[in-house]
Write a protein that binds this DNA or RNA. Structure first.
Lengths: 229, 229
DNA sequence: ATTATGAATTGACAATTGTCAAAGATGATC
DNA sequence: GATCATCTTTGACAATTGTCAATTCATAAT
């Protein structure tokens, strides 16, 4: 594991507040693994062995029911995932798979739960993280229940642009199919929604989406800090 | 405040593990208030002053965007709500209002955050609670993204019945309108969905729903522990 | 450059869900 | 028990979203 990776993990809110010693304990118990694209890392319904952290690459969290499948989230470095299952020591509610080749840091659940009991800073950080995640999902649920698919896409573009620095140009890190599933629509309808946004200041070619008229897009998206952060 | 109320609050997972002293401190800082039906307790976007606990009555958590409104959750005694906002000391993402007359215990956010830093048992309990809530909302999101409205209703009936003891008879504690919003559909479609479930072992009159053929309903609902708990 | 593979788009259509208006049922009040 | 207000149901219709099939496009391998 590279020193810079360790530093990045250490700088995560989740690990920033804990003692050096405890952090080292976690890191020495951890495994860093490379996985090829499209590899299933976690299967919903199984019990958690590790807390996972995407160090490099992209990971999709998804779920199935009967013959349907939906993307819950798409995770980029450096981020932890499935913390709640580890804390609760209960089955995963989501599956996870790599989208492209990825390096994943895996910290044994037991070690997490152990240090959690002994490091107050870490405990606080876990609380913050869980609260933040909880609120994140509330936002997603509101987005889904209160907006049409075109509105969801419009707001996603604005949010994505903002998180990329607001340059007005987004490059997808993955399939449009995956994006459509994350946004809760079919690939066909994503296509059509993008076409509709052509009348509202959005241009797209391939994996690139450009905001050519932000005002117009905002009029259409009507973003809200209580949904879009 | 009645002694039995205090005992009920104390017996909540959130407060069970803390020291007697800290619990007393919280309780003496707390207010117990009665509210009439349809009273707004919390407005999304405002900063949290109190952790709320429904001691009696029913509370609806809901959210608005533009001219639309949706029910996020319906809360019965004895349950806390909006914990995540209190912990994060950040704006509410949901509003709350009473459905019928309710007694609400309100503990100052500051007191919660203070004791959280000094009582390890309480801190652990908060983590558990947050993780549990997080997972709860993941389930709701999966339900919404993976199922049609009839399927959501069918599974809601099964889940509700189970939480009421499995007697096969449910009495709604509120409007059908509120239920429809919680399930993510219009009142009209709830009516039609219930009518459809007539062919799948469900009978309803007024606020009463009876499962007359559980097998049939289960065939239609296809409940999953990873969504319905 | 050519082909082959999978992704994305488009069109036609179907299913689901929402809207509006009216009628019917329910429950509280006098 | 009659009346009023509200909730629920029903029907007709519209909008949204999904499905299937065909075509186009992009990309990577030969």
């Amino acid at each position: 594991m590279r020193r810079s990776d360790i530093e990045q993990v250490r700088s995560l809110p989740l690990f920033r507040e804990m003692t050096k010693t405890h952090f080292s304990t976690l890191m020495s118990a951890a495994l860093l693994q490379k996985f090829p694209a499209r590899t299933v890392l976690i299967r919903e319904g199984e019990l958690p062995d590790f807390l996972h952290i995407v160090v490099e690459g992209t990971v999709e969290l998804y779920s199935r029911w009967e013959d349907r499948e939906t993307t819950i989230d798409i995770i980029r470095p450096v981020t932890t995932f499935i913390l709640a299952a580890v804390i609760q020591d209960d089955v995963y509610l989501k599956s996870a798979r790599t989208i492209d080749a990825a390096r994943i840091l895996m910290i044994p659940s037991e070690a997490i739960r152990d240090i959690f009991g002994r490091d107050a800073g870490f405990a606080r950080a876990i609380v913050s993280e869980l609260a933040l995640r909880y609120r994140g999902i509330v936002r997603v649920l509101k987005d889904r229940k209160l907006r049409t698919s075109v509105e969801r896409l419009a707001n996603w573009i604005l949010a994505m642009d903002r998180s990329e620095g607001g340059g007005g140009r987004i490059v997808l890190a993955h399939d449009k199919r995956t994006l459509s599933s994350r946004l809760g629509m079919t690939p066909e309808n994503l296509s059509r929604s993008l076409a509709i946004l052509g009348d509202h200041g959005v241009e797209g070619t391939g994996r690139e989406i450009v905001i050519v008229d932000r005002e117009a897009l905002q009029r259409c998206a009507k973003p809200s800090p209580l949904i879009d952060g």
